[in-house]
Design a protein around this nucleic acid. Structure first.
Lengths: 197, 197
DNA sequence: CATTTAAATTGACCGTGGTCATTTTAGGAG
DNA sequence: CTCCTAAAATGACCACGGTCAATTTAAATG
């Protein structure tokens, strides 16, 4: 057997540096919010060089993908832990913590939209995963619910997702920003899930 | 009456410079597409200094807003000039040229999403205007159509818009990019506009 | 322990969007 | 025509994301 380059296991310091970067990023966000995050500030607080950042994250967006994706996942955990909503209003209410987070900053919503569809199968990022997960959760709710029978639960879930995004969009839309997102979402869901009712 | 600074009329060269910048931008886009547009390249072709660009456009995004908004408007003109669609399939087909343009580049779609909701009433940009216009056109179609009577044409139009965006999103989503956007849009519209049918 | 090598880290450097104090110019007033 | 002033144009400069050749370090091997 010829001398051959073996893939070495990842080193301890790799995980340590990664953790330092994530901690630093979270602390920056806690202080100034997502939009104001600067890579320079992150590496400064983490005590590493700038190049190290990009050895760990493809670009700034990849960091945001991870951080925001983790936050969405946390909300989905809570949503899953709750009782299955039985009415449209309960469903709209169940989504609200997630909606509130997604609309906490215009920048955050933009990042989410940009990553909601994965660019390639091989690189389905954290946020794209949460969209898949949200659809699953919703479809599971709808599977044993007294709503529409003419279309699949999956299609219903896709529509719910589209309307959640639409409701959040309106938060940032000057033409409509007087409306309450939860109320608006309930209107959409009623029209989508209980037509002619 | 005291000597007083009067607002002067805009000068001829202002319009000329603006036109030069827009022409240059269009030529860059024709050559390399939207994403590859560089402000430096635009001012080079326009024969003006970099600072001049930003005297005419708040930022690069504002230029994109204007150019892409104009393109969308052109598509809406064509859509309005055509016969009112009578079926779901015709409606989906009617939107296709617009859908195709909106998904011509990932970057273009991102710009559109970023500008679809105006940040403030005072600054409703070209793209935000086209969204309003598209909703109007759709609502006008739906006003005398045999579809749903349980919700207003305006709400139906909002949903159509949400599903058009959703259909475009799938074009860029690796998990779904095998699907034909027109077919997908038709499925959404059928489920939204003719439930239980 | 000494040697070796791939992985991890570094920081000077670059590309590009955006700013602003300074200079130039259009065009109205005398 | 000349002067004057506000608008327009200029380009050196900055901010910040991202790159990469060179350096350091972990840890496997003998």
């Amino acid at each position: 057997m010829p001398k051959q380059a073996m893939a070495r296991a990842i080193q301890q310091r790799t995980l340590k540096t990664r953790a330092k970067l994530l901690d630093a990023a979270n602390s920056v966000i806690a202080d100034n919010g997502y939009e104001a995050l600067r890579v320079e500030e992150v590496v400064l607080r983490a005590g590493v060089a700038k190049g190290t950042f990009f050895a760990h994250f493809k670009d700034k967006d990849a960091l945001m993908d991870q951080l925001i994706g983790a936050e969405i996942d946390r909300h989905l955990d809570l949503i899953e832990a709750q009782d299955v909503p039985k009415t449209i209003n309960e469903m709209a209410a169940a989504f609200m913590p997630l909606v509130t987070f997604m609309s906490c900053e215009r920048y955050v919503f933009d990042v989410i939209l940009r990553h909601s569809g994965a660019a390639a199968n091989a690189e389905v990022g954290p946020i794209a995963m949460t969209f898949g997960r949200q659809a699953e959760v919703t479809a599971a709710w709808l599977a044993d619910m007294p709503f529409r029978k003419d279309i699949s639960a999956d299609l219903q879930a896709e529509g719910v997702q589209a309307f959640v995004v639409q409701a959040i969009s309106l938060v940032f839309c000057a033409l409509h920003n007087a409306v309450d997102p939860q109320e608006r979402l309930a209107i959409y869901l009623r029209a989508w899930l209980t037509p002619n009712a």
